[in-house]
Design a protein around this nucleic acid. Structure first.
Lengths: 159, 159
DNA sequence: TGATTTATTTCGATAGTCAAACTAAATTGT
DNA sequence: ACAATTTAGTTTGACTATCGAAATAAATCA
């Protein structure tokens, strides 16, 4: 069937717009009210890209979150000053800066993950296994489409 | 059942994170490559808040998109200069500025709506009516939850 | 009418971004 | 081996978006 013909298409579309236009803002606001009010959502994404265990170079992280190298440098400065991440020069190649989370960084990282797990938990509220499969398929459709848009544009992307 | 126990929870969660972390960026990038490369996604949200028919005051729009009045003023200046919106002093109350879209503004507005309808269309790809209902329920769950978070924080919100 | 409230604007300060120039280290070609 | 090139990151200067505080202007209230 043509899925745009369902009577619920408009309603669903409107709610999706609400979600997309507001998740970021809510995330930002939640952060401001938390113990970690000194970082922005963009900072959080930097921390998220560095992630728990694997050390990444500054330029790897820059690509993942679509920042230029110079903007990455100042973003790192900020987060180092605030005590969330560490900068270490690689021994193998002394040009590269390896990034890692400090204890404080790991704490926010986990809190942020928890925020997202909460969202997913609530998305699936009161759903049966078969329904969860359907939702999973829908989200997977969306990710595939976005991946595709990215390829058309020929830009790097952090998926 | 406890929905966090489904074996697909982690997978779904990861994909959702991908969607949230990237939709904004993709939207931004798509805009940059379009005919409307002179506006940012934030500008687009301003245009979206003004919307097609109902004229809104500057402060109403500011609240909807979580900008301070002063930031709203300069955002409006920007978009007036670029020819997307119009500023008209209300006759009823000459303090208030009523905002409306120009022809150009209405064109981007529709293009942006089309972008979102595309997302929804792809979310529902190859789904049957009953499955669409399930997805709709899931998204509705999420919106309710976000609305709730907003209320807890006691902040205004544009839903 | 004078005081207060409301809607918006202006101003000064700050933060984040980019592009271009630069430094330092590694790699390549001869 | 070593000069030229490439790569990784930093610095600098310019620009834009944002905020908070003060200013302006219009409406409303006592």
């Amino acid at each position: 069937m043509n899925d745009t013909s369902t009577p619920y298409f408009e309603e669903l579309n409107d709610e999706l717009v609400v979600v997309f236009n507001n998740v970021m803002w809510i995330e930002e606001a939640a952060l401001k009210q938390s113990y970690f009010s000194d970082i922005t959502l963009k900072d959080m994404h930097t921390i998220d890209a560095i992630s728990m265990y694997s050390e990444k170079s500054a330029s790897q992280v820059a690509k993942m979150i679509h920042l230029t190298p110079s903007a990455m440098t100042t973003a790192i400065d900020r987060l180092v000053d605030k005590g969330y991440i560490e900068r270490r020069r690689s021994d193998k190649d002394r040009r590269v800066v390896r990034l890692g989370l400090t204890h404080k960084g790991r704490v926010v990282y986990r809190a942020h993950q928890e925020f997202h797990r909460d969202l997913t938990h609530n998305l699936l509220k009161d759903m049966q296994e078969s329904e969860i499969q359907t939702v999973r398929r829908a989200i997977h459709n969306l990710v595939s489409y976005l991946r595709n848009v990215r390829n058309i544009k020929g830009e790097p992307w952090n998926i």
